[in-house]
Structures are given as structure tokens and as C-alpha cells.
């Protein structure tokens, strides 16, 4: 029997975002295994690959466009500490380590042992002639039950792929236009938007 197989990315599988069948192997190649919920999004950014890579590789920049990430402390060249917003003004935190990287092309990371929300991901940068760079984010995580599960639901706005898409759009806006678009009218309104 030939396995049903096509060229679409595993993250677009009809099987409800879970890795399964043909997708499973492809996803396993993408990232270290840290859970079984897989999301993936790509965006095309009209800037050079190296420039985009450099901004992303400096994890301290990420909270500017990753909406739910409050802070990333860079510990050393490979390790970082993540502080992520949770409901009720609380936060969830974990350490992450870079598991693989190819300068200008890709960065892969995974949470370390004992993280409340085991997760891993990778970001890829690929040239597209004349249109800049395709940036693809792939994240695998293990949403726990109970309170933390709710935190995660909020973190990814229930539809994890939607949050990823919004974050990538903000990254694109920042890199293409130098700023992140807002419809706010006053600083006060802008402040509320960011909460």
C-alpha cells in the first residue's frame, strides 16, 4: 500500500494540526520533539535574509513583535530565559537552548528539562528571487491541562496558528517599514492595546 502523500507542508494537514501519518516524519525532521501540537506559518518579507536572521537571532528583540512574550533574557550564546504573559497579570517562564543553527538560514530551539510548557521550534529564512525572504516559523508544544493549559490558550489566542500569523506580520511590518502599524489614536490607547 502506498501512503497517501503530497507536497503540502505537514502543518497544513487536515488532521487538526496534530502531527500524524506522513506529516509526522516531516515534522520530526523539523524540530526536536517537545509535544505533539504543531503549528507553522510562513510570511514573505521584502528584506535581505541576513538582515532578518540577525534581528531574530538577538532574542532580546523578539518581544517587540511577539505579542505575548514579555521578556527574553539572553543568558549566553546558546541559552535564554523566556517570560511569557499569562492571564491575571501572571507570567509563565522557562529556559530555552539553541539546538541547531545555520547563520543566515535557520535557528532551532527547545525548552530545557522541567519547563511547565515543553516546547520547541525553528525559524527558517529562505531567499525568494525579487521578493525578499520567506520566513517560516514552526513550533511544537505540549499544552498541559488545567491552569497552565488556559495560560497557553490565552498565549496562542485559542487558535495557535492565528497568533503565530499575527506575530509574523508584526515582524514583517517592523522589518519592512521600521515600525509596527497601530490604529490607536493616543498613547493611552496604544498602551491598552499592548496589555
Amino acid at each position: 500500500m502506498v501512503e497517501p502523500h503530497d507536497d503540502a507542508p505537514p502543518t497544513t494537514s487536515k488532521r487538526s494540526g496534530k502531527r500524524s501519518g506522513a506529516g509526522e516524519q516531516a515534522a520530526a525532521e523539523l524540530v526536536e520533539h517537545k509535544g505533539d501540537t504543531l503549528i507553522g506559518r510562513s510570511v514573505t518579507i521584502n528584506r535581505a535574509r541576513d538582515e532578518l536572521y540577525a534581528v531574530w537571532r538577538d532574542f532580546g528583540n523578539l518581544p517587540r513583535f511577539l505579542d505575548n512574550v514579555e521578556r527574553v533574557d539572553v543568558i549566553d550564546d546558546r541559552r535564554s530565559h523566556w517570560v511569557v504573559k499569562a492571564p491575571g497579570g501572571k507570567t509563565v517562564e522557562w529556559d530555552a537552548v539553541i539546538t541547531q543553527e545555520q547563520p543566515g538560514e535557520m535557528i532551532a530551539w527547545a525548552s530545557t528539562e522541567g519547563a511547565e510548557v515543553p516546547n520547541s521550534g525553528r525559524i527558517d529564512f529562505r531567499d525568494v528571487g525579487g521578493r525578499g525572504t520567506v520566513v517560516s516559523a514552526t513550533i511544537v508544544y505540549d499544552p498541559p491541562a488545567g491552569f497552565i493549559g488556559k495560560v497557553i490558550a490565552k498565549m496562542f489566542q485559542r487558535e495557535p496558528a492565528i497568533q503565530a500569523r499575527r506575530d509574523l506580520r508584526r515582524f514583517k511590518q517592523l522589518m519592512e517599514t521600521g515600525e509596527i502599524a497601530t490604529a490607536a489614536r493616543t498613547r493611552e490607547m496604544l498602551g491598552k492595546e499592548k496589555d
Binding site: 521584502n46 500569523r165 499575527r166 506580520r169 502599524a181 497601530t182
Partner: peptide, 26 residues
């Protein structure tokens, strides 16, 4: 329109990728 994106480069300003805030694009 932002003037920087692919569509603005083609003068397709009302199709600008960046003029609409990220959350409102959904």
C-alpha cells in the same frame, strides 16, 4: 500604504501588506 512592501513597489497601494494592523488583518 507603507511604500515598502511588494505591493507598494508595484503601486498596488490598496493591497499594501503593512497598512493594516496585524490583529485587524484576520
Amino acid at each position: 500604504a507603507c511604500g515598502n512592501c511588494y505591493h507598494c513597489g508595484k503601486q498596488q497601494y490598496s493591497a499594501c501588506d503593512n497598512g493594516n494592523p496585524a490583529d485587524n488583518q484576520d
